[in-house]
Simulated assay, not measured.
Amino acid sequence: METSRVELPAVFEEAPIDQLVHLIADMMERLMSHNDRIPLSPECLTRFHSRSAPSISVLDYLKRIVKFTNVEKSCLLITLYYIDRICTRMPLFTLSSLTCHRFTIASITVSSKGLCDTFCPNHLYAKVGGISVTELNILEREFLSMIDWRLMCTREILQDYYVNLVRTHSTAKFVINGAQSPSTSSDSDLDMDSGHSSPPSPSENPSRWSRPSTAEPSIMQDLSQRPTIEQNMAFAALQQSQDYTNSVTERK
């Protein structure tokens, strides 16, 4: 039986938030399924690792966050940007069933404070996320360190992630209304570094968005050239597997 197509607006701001949640959860579930097969070594452990995987699914977890925190769509999408950024800076980190939930609530907490005029207090984010306030405070500081305190990206980049989510959804049931989806907007730029309302595209000046070091490859390339979040996670998985094999060999 063929799955019925679901048409979505060309821009993420107009997409129903419940559909956006399904798109993001689908991507995260696939990343988790991939990364859960990677052997976990001591050097890969972070504050985001749980002792066991939470019983709540990522989809239900995101729905819970949306229901009780009134999170904005940009904060949901920018979580994917943070995953790419952190996996570029820290190749040993992977989004798995042990890290996804804590990572997500920390990301929502941080991005809401950085992007939104109004946001919830930490005790509410902690309650919704199922952790203590003390733990969330620690995760928030760790998260900021992992992204090098670079909270902002452009609206253009979030639009690119939205298009990619629709294009790569596992069921292929979502389709964007219209042949092309705009990826620029003069009124909804999220980059706070310059104060300009209409920044150039990342391909024109990629260093402006990510300011990578010579040892850190930029992930802010043109959409046709920029690796997808799946490719970045696959690279991180390969790097982690190689590091783990090398460490075992050295111990022998």
Rank of each mutant, 00 (worst) to 15 (best):
I86R: 01
T104M: 14
L80S: 00
N122W: 02
A106W: 00
H123Y: 09
L95H: 04
L59C: 04
S107Y: 02
Y82H: 08
L139S: 00
P121T: 01
L77Q: 01
I83M: 13
V133S: 00
I105L: 15
T88F: 08
T94N: 05
S132K: 07
L77Y: 01
I65P: 00
F103L: 15
F103R: 02
C116T: 13
D84Y: 01
V71S: 10
V133P: 03
Y81M: 08
M90L: 09
L98R: 03
S111V: 03
R102E: 00
I83S: 04
I78W: 07
I105S: 13
Y125H: 10
C75Q: 06
K113I: 14
Y61E: 05
F93K: 08
V110K: 09
C87T: 09
C87Y: 01
T118K: 13
V71C: 07
M90W: 09
K113G: 11
I131C: 14
T104G: 12
R85I: 00
R64I: 00
K113A: 15
P91Q: 10
I138T: 09
S74L: 05
H101D: 13
L98Q: 02
I108K: 09
T118V: 12
F68L: 09
E72M: 01
I105M: 15
T104N: 07
T99E: 01
T134R: 10
C100L: 05
C120Y: 14
F93S: 06
C87M: 06
R102M: 02
I78F: 02
L136W: 02
R64D: 06
L92H: 15
T79R: 05
L92M: 15
G130T: 01
I86H: 03
H123E: 09
R85P: 00
T104F: 04
R85S: 09
T79Q: 11
T99D: 06
D117F: 13
G130K: 04
K127C: 13
